[in-house]
Design a protein around this nucleic acid. Structure first.
Length: 493
RNA sequence: GGCGGCAUAGCCAAGUGGCUAAGGCAGCGGUCUGCAAAACCGUUAUUCUCCGGUUCAAAUCCGGAUGCCGCCUCCA
């Protein structure tokens, strides 16, 4: 099945055809380094991470570029406020960003260029635009002339007249058209600057992406991505700059991820409902966040709440419980003399083929515009299927059982590798989960373990009253006790 | 004012013309268990906001209504 991608530019799902057979070049707009990453950044990062992982698993060689904006008004403001250098601010938040992404299991992009390292590329591009008459210089500022670019508005589906008629456009006397945007800004007193043919100044926001994508991916590359808010004006302006300069399309496919909402409200500073990645990772295993994000389609808004994360946590625990059973089954030695004696039945073979079929469906779901929600549906079907198998075949020691376990191991490894979940050791996962949950609820793991031990002793002595009393006590703390033949494990509800 | 999106079970959420409307969470009945829990088995939408239309056939296409949301200003 060919890869399909919903292209913002055409508002349609299209069959993906790379510029160069077998490779994918992708550019995603990264962060402006002036604050810590929030859950919205996490969504975009996780989604594009999965998209790239999937393309790679399908055999494409992917070049993934995600930039850092390290010069910008907000960074300058913050530097002023804290009385530190601009590079001090940007370095701090780039480092924190990298930590957060690593914690979320987001793989590093192939390249992570910074705007300030590409000022020359930007100046070169702006010069071309001036030369071609698409840009003009006024008192040290350089503006892009939207009237000279007939395709302007094509990506976001707007036209110039309507936008000019809109009341919210700021009127600037220097601009020929109110929609013209800055390519280069004359530096103000005390601001950082670079020398340019138009005097001392710094780049406008949009030009960096045009310059860096051109440098690393060429004039036309495959996929350009970002959050949906970037469609206008940022990506519209990038297209205008790049295509006016090169005469070629900037990117063939435009992908935009939807926003994260908080309890059905827009996440914003004024509402004070911004959740940082680090504060969430303090409470939840990173894969819970990934699972939560991937359960919705990337283009839909996703509603983030304590409750929805808790649901994702239960769902992930279900997967790890199965992996744990699987690991135990794999560790159990199978007497080799029994293997040869028993023949594999059709029913047994069926177990393996269903798992392999689910893997195919999983990949096909991701081929279809990266439908991670549907792909996860197949993961959970595989979980149930595996549980069935593990219960039904518990006592079996046939050759098939070990084949099935190996297949399952392979299939779940594939699911996990593509979605970036199920990467933890199950025991470690549950331990980590316990630590986070107990910290959150002010529980003491040691005390709980002691109670569990006490209860086990009571059970061994068949002192059911005592055992039940302890269990009731633990239940009040929302701790679930799981007894098996000779051990007792526990989880936090 | 302009442009765009969404509405599917108690909750979350796939599905965009035709097999029984994925999956998760929660609930209920059963197996298991000292009793539970976990796991497993079974079960929970004759129906996809409403009203019209197209079609042999629509949650899925078209028109209209209602409700919610996003972008147009820095924003992932």
């Amino acid at each position: 099945m060919p890869q399909k991608i919903f292209n913002t530019a055409t508002r349609r799902k299209e069959i993906f055809k790379p510029v160069k057979e077998g490779t994918v070049s992708i550019y995603v707009c990264g962060i402006t380094a002036y604050d810590v990453c929030h859950i919205g950044h996490a969504r975009g990062a996780i989604f594009f991470d999965v998209a790239v992982r999937h393309l790679r698993s399908r055999g494409y060689q992917v070049i993934y570029v995600k930039n850092f904006t390290d010069i910008d008004d907000k960074i300058i403001d913050r530097a002023k406020k804290e009385k530190v250098s601009i590079s001090g601010i940007s370095k701090r938040y780039i480092d924190l960003h990298n930590e957060d992404m690593a914690a979320l299991g987001v793989e590093n992009p192939t390249l992570a260029p910074r705007a300030t390292e590409h000022i020359d590329d930007m100046i070169a591009l702006i010069s071309i635009l001036i030369q071609k008459g698409n840009a003009y210089c006024v008192e040290g500022d350089v503006y892009f002339s939207v009237d000279k670019f007939p395709l302007y508005g094509g990506l976001s589906g707007r036209n110039l007249e309507e936008m000019v008629a809109g009341a919210r456009i700021d009127i600037n006397d220097k601009k020929k058209n109110p929609l013209d945007f800055a390519l280069w800004k004359k530096s103000k007193e005390g601001e950082p600057f670079w020398e340019s043919p138009w005097g001392k100044g710094r780049p406008g926001w949009h030009i960096e992406c045009s310059a860096m994508s051109r440098r690393y991916l060429g004039e036309t590359f495959d996929i350009h991505g970002g959050g949906e808010d970037l469609v206008f004006p940022h990506h519209e302006n990038e297209i205008a700059q790049s295509q006016a300069a090169t005469g070629k399309p900037l990117a063939n496919y435009w992908m935009h991820n939807g926003f994260v909402r908080i309890n059905s409200e827009k996440m914003s500073k004024s509402l004070g409902n911004i959740f940082s990645v680090r504060e969430i990772l303090n409470k939840y295993h990173p894969e819970v966040v990934r699972l939560f994000m991937l359960q919705s389609h990337y283009r839909s808004p996703v509603d983030f709440s304590e409750n929805s994360l808790a649901e994702a946590r239960s769902a992930l625990a279900r997967c790890y419980a199965t992996l744990q059973l699987q690991t135990e089954a794999l560790d159990r030695p199978v007497p080799s003399n029994n293997l040869s004696k028993k023949k594999t039945s059709a029913k047994e073979e069926n177990y393996t083929s269903i798992l392999e079929e689910l893997k195919e469906k999983f990949d096909a779901a991701l081929d279809d515009d990266f439908n991670t929600a549907q792909a996860l549906g197949y993961v959970f079907e595989a979980v149930r299927h595996m549980n069935n198998f593990l219960v039904a075949e518990q006592k079996a020691t046939t050759l098939h059982k070990s084949i099935m376990l190996q297949t399952s191991k392979k299939v779940f490894a594939h699911f996990g590798a593509v979605l970036g979940i199920l990467q933890d050791d199950p025991d470690h996962y549950f331990r980590c989960d316990k630590e986070k949950e107990s910290r959150k609820r002010g529980l003491n793991i040691e005390e709980i373990e002691n109670l569990i031990k006490e209860r086990q002793a009571a059970r061994a002595a068949k002192d059911w009253a005592r055992a039940d009393a302890i269990r009731d006590e633990l239940t009040k703390l929302r701790i679930i006790v799981k007894d098996s033949n000779n051990t007792t494990s526990w989880i936090i509800e």
